[in-house]
Design a protein around this nucleic acid. Structure first.
Lengths: 131, 131
DNA sequence: GTTAAAGTTTGACTCAACTCTAGATGTTGA
DNA sequence: TCAACATCTAGAGTTGAGTCAAACTTTAAC
C-alpha cells in the first residue's frame, strides 16, 4: 500500500508543506519516488512520521529528532546512544507531567477564586485574588 | 522590598532582556521606576511574572496572556471572561497531561525494545524494532 | 485529448519569542 | 572620585518551525 503526499497529509493531519519540510530536513529517511518524481509513501514512512509527532509532543526540537534519525541510519553501533536518548526523553516527559500537574493545581486555585468572585459579587473580595 | 531588574532575572531564572521584552509587550503592568528611570520591581510584579511563567508552561502564547492581562486591567466587568479563560486552560492542561501519558507509554515501549536489543545482541532482532 | 487537481522545486517570507548591540546614563564600593 | 558594573532605549538579528509563491509537470477523469 502506498500513498501520495496529499493522502499522507490528510491521514497524519499535517500540511503537505510540512511533510516536504520534514523530508528536506532529513527527518523522514528515503521516501521513494515514481519515475516522474512524485513521492510515494509506504507504511514505514508513516511510522517515521508518527515517531516525529511523538517526539515533537515531548517538545523535542527537530534537530534532535534529526540526530536520532541519523543514528538510526548509521546502524547498530548507535543502539546504545539511541537507548540513552529514549531514557533521557522518559525522564523529561515524566518531569513535564509533574510540572503540568503543578500548573493544574494553580489553575484550579484560580478557577475557585473566580467562581467565588462571581458567586459572591466581585466587590466583596480583595482585588489581588482576581489576578 | 523592591528589586532591580538584574535581581529579578536571577530570582526568576529569566534574562534581563526577556523581562524588558515582557514589559514592552504589556505582560507586566505598571512596573514603577526610580527618578532616574531604573525599573523597581515589587513582589506584586514578581507575582505577575510567576503567572506568565505558569501560563507559558501550558503552551499559552504570549499574546493570549496579554489578552488576559488586558482584561485584568479593564476591571471587574471582565471577571467572567477571565474565569472562562481559566476553565479553558484547565481543559487544555488536562489534555496535555493525557497526551504526555500516551507518549510516555510509547517511549517506555521503545526503551524496552532497546534494552532487549542490547541484552540479546543487536543482530538477533528485526530491524524495525530499533526504529 | 483536454483540463482540473495535485504534484514538483527553489527560494523567499512569516511569526513567535526571544537575544543582542550600541551608545548613553546611573550606581556603588574602595 | 573614579573604575567597574548595572541599567536604559531603540532597533537589529536570530532561531525554530513552518508557510507560501511562481513556474512548471504529472495524473486522473471525462
Amino acid at each position: 500500500m502506498s500513498y501520495t503526499i496529499g493522502e499522507v497529509a490528510k491521514k497524519m493531519n499535517l500540511s503537505v508543506h510540512t511533510i516536504r519540510y520534514y523530508e528536506k530536513e532529513g527527518l523522514i529517511p528515503s521516501i521513494s519516488r515514481t519515475k516522474s518524481g512524485l513521492r510515494t509513501f509506504e507504511d514505514a514512512d508513516l511510522e517515521w512520521i508518527k515517531l516525529i509527532e511523538c517526539l515533537k509532543a515531548t517538545n523535542m526540537p527537530l534537530k534532535d529528532i534529526k540526530t536520532y534519525i541519523d543514528w538510526y541510519i548509521e546502524g547498530d553501533s548507535t543502539i546504545p546512544k539511541r537507548y540513552e536518548m529514549f531514557l533521557k526523553r522518559k525522564q523529561i516527559v515524566e518531569n513535564q507531567i509533574k510540572e503540568l500537574q503543578k500548573t493544574l493545581t494553580f489553575i484550579n486555585f484560580k478557577c475557585n477564586y473566580y467562581e467565588n468572585a462571581i458567586k459572591n459579587g466581585s466587590t466583596k473580595m480583595k482585588e489581588k485574588l482576581y489576578k
